[in-house]
């Protein structure tokens, strides 16, 4: 089949239309990456910062401390993975619930999902620190129920809670959009053809909203992988994540080349992790 006829645009006007978004992407996405990679090939002057001399000492440091870096990276991936899974598990029913609400209530519910993002992420993470500390409200409640104080803070669990709380809206919104677009007739058809509610979800609703679920999972996973505020506030020595390692190079060690190298490595790892997802989608579409 030939592609549907589109309005004929001359090569000049086509280029002009594309120029702005391309420039935009180059400026906002590509340029920082280039700066980061270039910085990673410098060396740290005694006073800190970067000296561009084409040295690979930052990368060789990473290679020589492979054990530390990979342990931190795996821990980060694990924490981000669990947070992503929980976000998807919580966001899916939420998104369905909102999508099935009466039209007028939907806008309100979506607003409620987004409203917390209007205050500072740092502030909200501090709030969790207060909630979860040993003398905090959660433990007081547990005390009333006769359960002893639990030290939530400084654990991977606390970091996961903080990440899930922080990034849940990013999972809810794309899943909501996918559910909202799903043709309700297909759900009726599945029930009509003998599928119970669970099989209707598994065999029809889930596969048809998978794109939204994958988008939501990516939007949670990538910032979780690079998180540094949440583990710094809610975690401890045992929850040190790649984002913190990177951050510490800039803010504590003043070693810009090493920080940049770590950042570049993280970006590359995230890209590698998401590549199969992108390829799978392309295959599914073909």
């Amino acid at each position: 089949m030939s592609p549907p006829p589109t309005e004929r645009a001359g090569p000049v006007s086509k280029a002009a239309t594309l120029a702005l978004p391309v420039a935009w992407a180059a400026l906002l996405l590509l340029l920082p990456l280039v700066v980061m990679v270039v910085t990673s090939t410098g060396s740290r002057p005694p006073s800190g910062g970067v000296q561009h001399d084409g040295s690979l000492q930052a990368w060789s440091w990473i290679a020589s401390r492979g054990e530390l870096v990979s342990r931190t990276a795996w821990r980060s991936a694990r924490i981000a993975g669990v947070a992503t899974l929980l976000c998807v598990l919580l966001a899916t029913p939420t998104a369905w619930w909102i999508a099935r609400a009466p039209l007028r209530r939907r806008a309100l519910l979506l607003l409620l999902v987004v409203v917390p993002s209007w205050t500072s992420f740092l502030l909200r993470t501090y709030a969790w620190k207060i909630l979860l500390r040993t003398e905090g409200p959660v433990n007081e409640l547990l005390g009333l129920l006769g359960a002893g104080p639990v030290s939530f803070l400084n654990t991977e669990g606390a970091v996961v809670v903080g990440l899930v709380y922080g990034y849940l809206p990013f999972a809810v919104l794309p899943i909501y959009v996918a559910v909202e677009r799903l043709d309700r007739d297909l759900l009726h058809a599945a029930r009509d053809l003998g599928a119970g509610p669970v099989r209707t979800f598994v065999s029809v609703a889930f596969p048809l909203t998978l794109a939204g679920t994958v988008a939501g999972a990516m939007l949670v996973f990538v910032p979780s992988l690079a998180a540094f505020v949440t583990p710094a506030l809610l975690g401890g020595d045992d929850t040190y994540m790649v984002g913190q390692l990177t951050q510490d190079q800039f803010m504590k060690a003043r070693d810009w080349p090493l920080g940049s190298a770590l950042g570049a490595a993280l970006a590359a790892a995230a890209l590698l992790a998401l590549l199969p997802v992108a390829l799978a989608k392309r295959v599914a579409r073909a």
């Binding site: 043709d183 007739d185 009726h188 058809a189 053809l193 003998g194 596969p207 048809l208």
Partner: peptide
């Protein structure tokens, strides 16, 4: 519906696109 011995041909077909 899933427990009734009837099947529907829907007006807009409702074929599963996946």
């Amino acid at each position: 519906p899933e427990q009734r011995p009837v099947h529907t041909v829907f007006q807009h077909y409702a074929l599963f696109p996946h």
